[in-house]
Design a binder for these strands. Sequence first.
DNA 1: CATGAATGAGAGTTCATTCAT
DNA 2: TATGAATGAACTCTCATTCAT
Lengths: 241, 241, 241, 241
Amino acid sequence: MEKNPAVPMRRPPASAKSEQRIRDILRVARQVFSEAGFQAATTTEIAQRLDVSEATVFTYFGGKRELCVRVISDWYDEIIAKVEDNLPHVHGARAQLHYLVHTYLRHLLAEGPGLCAFILSEGRARNDDFGEIYAELQRRYTAPLMRILAQGQADGDIRQDMPLRLLRSAVYGPMEHVLWDAILRGARGDVTATADQLVGFLWQALQPPQQNALALAQFRGEVQNALHRLQSSENSEGGAY
Amino acid sequence: MEKNPAVPMRRPPASAKSEQRIRDILRVARQVFSEAGFQAATTTEIAQRLDVSEATVFTYFGGKRELCVRVISDWYDEIIAKVEDNLPHVHGARAQLHYLVHTYLRHLLAEGPGLCAFILSEGRARNDDFGEIYAELQRRYTAPLMRILAQGQADGDIRQDMPLRLLRSAVYGPMEHVLWDAILRGARGDVTATADQLVGFLWQALQPPQQNALALAQFRGEVQNALHRLQSSENSEGGAY
Amino acid sequence: MEKNPAVPMRRPPASAKSEQRIRDILRVARQVFSEAGFQAATTTEIAQRLDVSEATVFTYFGGKRELCVRVISDWYDEIIAKVEDNLPHVHGARAQLHYLVHTYLRHLLAEGPGLCAFILSEGRARNDDFGEIYAELQRRYTAPLMRILAQGQADGDIRQDMPLRLLRSAVYGPMEHVLWDAILRGARGDVTATADQLVGFLWQALQPPQQNALALAQFRGEVQNALHRLQSSENSEGGAY
Amino acid sequence: MEKNPAVPMRRPPASAKSEQRIRDILRVARQVFSEAGFQAATTTEIAQRLDVSEATVFTYFGGKRELCVRVISDWYDEIIAKVEDNLPHVHGARAQLHYLVHTYLRHLLAEGPGLCAFILSEGRARNDDFGEIYAELQRRYTAPLMRILAQGQADGDIRQDMPLRLLRSAVYGPMEHVLWDAILRGARGDVTATADQLVGFLWQALQPPQQNALALAQFRGEVQNALHRLQSSENSEGGAY
DNA sequence: CATGAATGAGAGTTCATTCAT
DNA sequence: TATGAATGAACTCTCATTCAT
C-alpha cells in the first residue's frame, strides 16, 4: 500500500520555452560543475544562479547526476560533431593526427581550466551506471583516431609492432597530461605550439622503424629491454623489477 | 625518505604504541580509500575496520582530508624511495627510462585497481590547500625522469627541440592512460610487455632526428659492455628474447 | 443511487464532454490508487496515463484527496446500488445474510487485491475532513445488514442479547480479515466456499440460544464469563485482566 | 570512484546510556506514530520532542521505517510475552479464548485510539521489505489462538467443518472491527462487556453442531468445581450477575 | 477548457567533526 | 589515550498545487 510500483517521471514536452530552459540549465550547470567539480557542486547553486527554484531544475532533469551526464555528453557531442565535420577535409595521416590533437587541446582549454578538469576527471568515473555512458562517449570520441591509426598500420605508414590500444594511450595520454599540467599550474601556454611539438614527437614515434635499419633497430630494442631486466635483477633488492 | 613534512598533524605523539596506531590507521585508510575513493570513503568505515572509535582516528589525524593526503604522500614516498635506491644502479638513459616506466606501472597496479584509481584521481585534486602538496609530491617523483631527460638532452642523446615539461607529459601521460584503461576495462594485461612496448615507442620519439647512425654505434658499445658483464643465463619465458 | 452529495467539487461542469472527462479521470485514478495506495499514488501518474496535463485533473477535482474520496465513494455507490437492487428479491434472513457476505467478498476481490486493499485501508482513514464522509458511506453500506439483523431480532430469529453494533462487527470483521488474508498471502481462494462457511459460522452464532434450554444456556455464558474473570484475577500479576 | 561498496552502519554499543536513549526514542516515536500515523509522522517531530537533533535519532535507528518496525515489533513483543505468561494458567478452551479476546482488546485500547489505529493499519502494510516482518509478528501473535482452536478441533469441542484459517479470521476480524468502530466513533465503550459478548457469540458459533447437551453437562462440572474454589464475593456492577 | 511552467515547503538522510569524561 | 555520544549543516529529491495564457 506504500511503495510505488509505477514510476512517474515528469518530463515536460519540448516546446520552445522548455528548450530554452533546458539550455539555460545546462549552461549554468556546466559553469557550476566546472568551478566546483561534481561533488562540490550543488543543485541549490545551479538554481540560484538561474533565479529559479530547485524544483524547476528537477522538473527538467532527473537529478544532479543526470545533469552531470548531460553536460559531459553535450561537451563530447560538440567536439565529436566538430571533428566529424572537419576531419574528412584534412588529408594525410600526419595532418589528421595534428588536427585531432590541436582540436582536443583547444576545445578543452577554451572554456577554461575548470571545465577541462571537470571533463577529464568526471569522464573517468567508474560509477556503476554512468561509467558505461562515459566509456561509450570515449569510444565514439576516439573512433576517428583509431581509424587513422588502423589505416596507417594497414598502409605501412605506422608501426605495426604495437597494439592499437597502446597507440591510443600514447596519443591521448600526453594530451591529458599536458592539460592537467596547464590546469594545475594555472598557465595556459601556447596551445598551437604545444600541439605542433606533441605531434612532432608522436609522429616520430609512430614511424615504422627505419628503412634498411629496420631489423637491426627492432632487434636493438629487444636486446636492450632484455638487458635492462638483467641489470635490474642484479640491482633490485626485493625481487621487484 | 623522511615523512612528508608538508603534512601537518594535530598532536604529534611519539611513543611506540602511537606509531603503531598511526601505521594501522594509515594501512586501513589506504584500503578504504582504494575501495571507495575519497568522497565515498567514510571515517566511520575506517574506524570500524580498526575496531576503534572514530574519535581515535581524529586523535591522530586532523581529519579525513589530512588522512587522505598522508596516504597519498606515503604511497609516493615508497615509490620515490625505491626509485632513488635503484636508479643509480641502472646505466644508460634508455635503461633508466625503462626502469621508471616499468616500476611505475607495476607499483600502481600491484595493490589493485582501486588504489591505482585513487592515486591517479586524487593526486589531481586542485583542492585549496592540498593541491600544492600533491604538486610537490609529483615534482619529487618526476625529478629522476627530469634529470634523465635533461642529461640526455645535454648529451645530445635526446632531442632538444621540445621543452622538458612536454617530454615529461609524453612519458607519464601514456602510462596513466594505460592504467586508466586497465582500471576501467578491469583487465590487467601484461605489465612487462606493455612497459617494453611503451619504452620502445617513447625511445624512438625521443631520438634526436637523424641520430640513427649514432644511436646504433652507441648501442653497439652498450651491447659489448653488457656481454662482458653477462654471467647469468637468459630466462626463456619472454619468447622473443 | 445518485452521486454522493457530500463530496464537494470546485467547479461543477455539466457538459457531456466534461462528464466523460470526469469518468475517465475517476477510472484511471481508481487504477492508480489500487496499484500504489493513496500515499504513493501521484497526480502526475494519473495525468500521464490520461495523456492530459496535471492541471486538467485539478480543473475537475479539488485535489488528490478529493479524488480519492470520489473513487471510494463511487465504489461504495456501486455496491450499495447493487445490493439495494437485488436484496429485495432474496427471501429469508439467512439467505439475505449470505447474499451480503457473498457480494461483498466478490466485489472487493473482483478488481484485484490492489483495489481491495485500497478500499479497506483508506476507508479507515480517520482524516480530519474525510473521516466523516467515509463513516457515512459505511453507514449507508451497512444499513441493509442492520435492517436484516434488527428485523431478525424483532422476529426472534436472531439473538437479542447483543447490541446490533456488535453483531455488525461480527459480520463485517471476519470478512475483512479474510480479505486481508487473501491480499497478504496473494492467494484468492474460493470466494463462494468461503462465503458459505462464513455464513454457516455466523448463522449458528446468531441463533437465539436454544429452545427450552434458553435461560440455562444464557445463564451458562454469563457465569462462565464471570468465572473467567475470577480465574484471571487469581493468575494475573500486574492487576491486568 | 564514487559509490560506496562498503556499507558502514553506525550502530553504537549497548551501554546503559545508549539503552536509555533507545528507550526514549522508541517511547516518543510510539507517541508520534500514534498521533499522526506512519506517513504523517516526521523524524523532525520525534527529535524535537526528545530535545535532541535529528541526527541522534538516526544514530540509533536506521531510519523512519526501521523505527516504525521497532515500535510495532515492541508492541507485539509485549502482548505476546504477556499472553505466553498467562495463558498457561487459564484452563479450558473457552476461558482461553476469552482471555485472548479480552487481553487483545484491552491492550490495544489501553494506550489510546491513536496507537490502536497505528498498529492495526501499519500492521497491514504489504511493503516489500517489512510486510514479511509484520506477517511473522502476526504469526507469532496468533499462534496461541491457533493452538487452542486446533486442540479444540482435535478434542471435538470445536467444529471441524471450517479451516483453521477461517476460524482465526472469525475471531480476530470482529475484534478489529470493534476496535475500528471504537476509534472512529471516539468512544471506548466497556471493553469487558464487549469481550464477554463477543466470546459468547463466538463460542456458540464454534460449537460442533448438536453438541448442546454435551456442553451443558461439561458446564455443570465446571461450575461445581468453580464454586468450591469460590472465596471472593461477586461484584455487582455487571447488572445481570 | 486545457495546460505549460513553476514552485513552496519540506522530508529523510548523511557524515565529518567535537568534546566531556 | 580513547571513546561514547551528540550534532550542525548540508544536500538531494518529491509532489501537490497554482496560475497566466
